[in-house]
Design a protein around this nucleic acid. Structure first.
Lengths: 150, 150
DNA sequence: TGTTGACTTAGAGCGCACTCTAAGACGTAC
DNA sequence: GTACGTCTTAGAGTGCGCTCTAAGTCAACA
C-alpha cells in the first residue's frame, strides 16, 4: 500500500518538526501538500520530494536555489523547466566537486596533525617511545575555503 | 623577512574584515595578537593560526570546538593539551569522512538526475534524438544528512 | 600640524533558518 | 461528548556569525 502519513508521522519520518514541515511548504521549499478534510496527507511523492530537498540542503545548496528547483518542477515537463532544473543541479554538482577536493585535502592535513600529536602521546594517553618534540612544528597554515551554514 | 601585517593587511590577506578579526580574537577563536604601541601586529604564527582556523570553519567545525582547540593550544605542550587537541581533530576528521561519503553519494545521484534531464533536452537546449519521456520517473528520494551553516 | 589608521568598550542590527505560542475552528475516534 | 490532532494567520523569540556605528584616544608619518 502507498504511503499516507499525517504531518506528525511525516515529521517523525524525516526528522523535521511539524513546524518546519509547514514552514517549508509556506516558503515554497516543497510543493503544497494535498489535504483530506483540511489535513495534510503526505504520500510517496511528497516524501520523496522532501527527502531530495533535505539532501540538497544537507549538502549546502542555498534555500533560494532549492526553491527555484521546486518552482521549476511545478511548471511540468516544459523545456524551460527541464533545462532549468538540469542547469541548477549541474551547478550544484560542480560546487560539490569543489568541496570534495577541499574536504579531502583537509582530512589529509588533519590526519597529519593528529599523527603528530599521537607521536607524542599515543591515542591511549601514554607517552610515545621515540619521537623528539616535533610538536608545534606547526602543521597549521593552508588556503581558505568557505561554507555557508552548510 | 618575517611577515608583519597591520590588521587591515591581515584582513586583506585572509578575506576577513577587520571587524571579524577583532571579533575572532575577542571570542577566543584566535589567540590574542601581539601589539606594537597598542596596534595589532600579525606575524607568521598569527597568520598560520588564522588560516588553520578558517580551514576548520570552512569544513563546518563548530566555533565552540575551534575555540576549545585554540584554548588547548594555549596551554602549551602538556599531555592534556596534546591529547585533547588530537581528540578534537580526530573527531572532526571522522565527521568529515562521513560528509565525504554523503557528498559522493549526492554527486552520483545528481549526475544521474542531470543525465536524465539532458536526455530530454541536451545541455545545448536542443531536444534529444531518442529518449522516451523518462522524466519524472522520479530520481528523487534518499537519506537525510545535515550540515550546520557549513 | 594634520591626516590616517589604529585602538577601546558597548551596543545595535542583520540574515538565515528555524521554533514556538496564541487563539479559535474543525474532524475523527473512543 | 470530550479528547486529540490537526488546521489557520500572525507574530514573537532564538542562536549563530558576523557587521557596523559611536565616541573618544593615541601613535606614526609627511
Amino acid at each position: 500500500m502507498p504511503t499516507s502519513l499525517t504531518i506528525a508521522e511525516a515529521a517523525l519520518a524525516t526528522g523535521l518538526t511539524t513546524y518546519t514541515l509547514r514552514y517549508y511548504e509556506q516558503i515554497g521549499l516543497i510543493d503544497p501538500v494535498p489535504r483530506r478534510s483540511g489535513q495534510r496527507i503526505y504520500g510517496d511523492p511528497e516524501m520523496r520530494l522532501i527527502q531530495f530537498v533535505l539532501r540538497l540542503r544537507g549538502t549546502g545548496m542555498p534555500m533560494r536555489d532549492i526553491q527555484e528547483y521546486v518552482r521549476l518542477r511545478r511548471l511540468g515537463e516544459t523545456p524551460e523547466s527541464i533545462i532549468g532544473r538540469g542547469d541548477l543541479l549541474e551547478r550544484h554538482a560542480m560546487h560539490l566537486r569543489g568541496e570534495l577536493v577541499t574536504l579531502t585535502e583537509t582530512i589529509t592535513r588533519l590526519d597529519e596533525k593528529i599523527a603528530l600529536y599521537r607521536s607524542i602521546y599515543g591515542a591511549d594517553g601514554t607517552p610515545a617511545p621515540v619521537a623528539g618534540n616535533a610538536a608545534e612544528s606547526n602543521v597549521d597554515a593552508t588556503p581558505t575555503p568557505r561554507r555557508k551554514h552548510a
